Simulated scan of single mutants.
Amino acid sequence: MSNYYLHTINLTRTLIIGNSGSGKSWLAKRLAEHLQVPWIDLDLTHWISDEHSIARPRAEALGMARVAASEERWVIEGVYDWMVSELVEQATALIWLCLEDEDCVNNIRLRESKRDDNDELLIALLEWAGSYRTREGSSGFVAHQRLFEGFSASKLQLMNRAEVTAFVSTMEQTD
């Protein structure tokens, strides 16, 4: 990835989408720090309690996401197309982390290595991440592909960890 491309992409209000375990939070944190803007993790908007998988009512979560997106500058990341598609009009850039399902599952195993292999929530998350390309609904590959293809502003599709790392390295070199 060239520095030229990084200078041509408007990262003022960046949406990052992708499968669970694709590295959305990792990238969003670094990008937000680099740009000195707020980072919004849609998991924290969607879930009242991640430990017990208690979802916030959709209207409430959507309202929270819209308030975050009304700010002048931000990085927002998440898997939830039903929320992201409501924010896309405010975005100046869209980054799609389109890693292979197996890579996402392996990333989750590394991230959650301290959890018991019999942990029901971990098992469900691994199954969820492993079904990205076949999953129907607003959080699957097809929904993200449609959102990406329809996005008319600056967009970037990163296909593997090396491309994500190269993007971050290029970004850091522009300091």
Results as ranks from 00 to 15, higher is better:
residue 6 L to W: 00
residue 8 T to C: 11
residue 8 T to P: 02
residue 9 I to N: 04
residue 10 N to A: 04
residue 11 L to A: 11
residue 11 L to Q: 08
residue 13 R to N: 07
residue 13 R to C: 05
residue 15 L to S: 03
residue 15 L to F: 06
residue 15 L to P: 04
residue 16 I to T: 09
residue 19 N to G: 06
residue 20 S to N: 12
residue 20 S to C: 14
residue 22 S to P: 08
residue 23 G to V: 00
residue 24 K to Q: 09
residue 25 S to G: 05
residue 27 L to D: 04
residue 29 K to G: 09
residue 29 K to P: 03
residue 30 R to P: 03
residue 31 L to P: 01
residue 33 E to M: 10
residue 33 E to F: 01
residue 35 L to H: 08
residue 35 L to T: 06
residue 35 L to E: 05
residue 36 Q to Y: 06
residue 37 V to I: 07
residue 37 V to K: 08
residue 38 P to G: 08
residue 39 W to F: 12
residue 40 I to P: 10
residue 42 L to S: 11
residue 42 L to T: 14
residue 42 L to C: 12
residue 45 T to V: 15
residue 46 H to D: 01
residue 47 W to H: 09
residue 48 I to T: 08
residue 48 I to C: 01
residue 48 I to A: 04
residue 50 D to K: 00
residue 52 H to F: 02
residue 55 A to Q: 14
residue 56 R to E: 07
residue 56 R to K: 13
residue 59 A to S: 13
residue 59 A to Q: 13
residue 59 A to T: 14
residue 60 E to K: 10
residue 63 G to Q: 07
residue 66 R to W: 04
residue 66 R to P: 03
residue 68 A to Q: 02
residue 68 A to I: 02
residue 69 A to Q: 07
residue 70 S to G: 05
residue 71 E to A: 05
residue 71 E to P: 00
residue 71 E to L: 02
residue 72 E to G: 05
residue 72 E to Y: 06
residue 75 V to S: 02
residue 76 I to Y: 04
residue 77 E to S: 15
residue 79 V to Q: 11
residue 81 D to V: 13
residue 81 D to L: 10
residue 82 W to K: 02
residue 84 V to E: 09
residue 85 S to T: 14
residue 85 S to D: 13
residue 86 E to I: 14
residue 87 L to W: 00
residue 88 V to S: 05
residue 89 E to F: 13
residue 94 L to S: 02
residue 94 L to H: 02
residue 96 W to R: 13
residue 97 L to A: 10
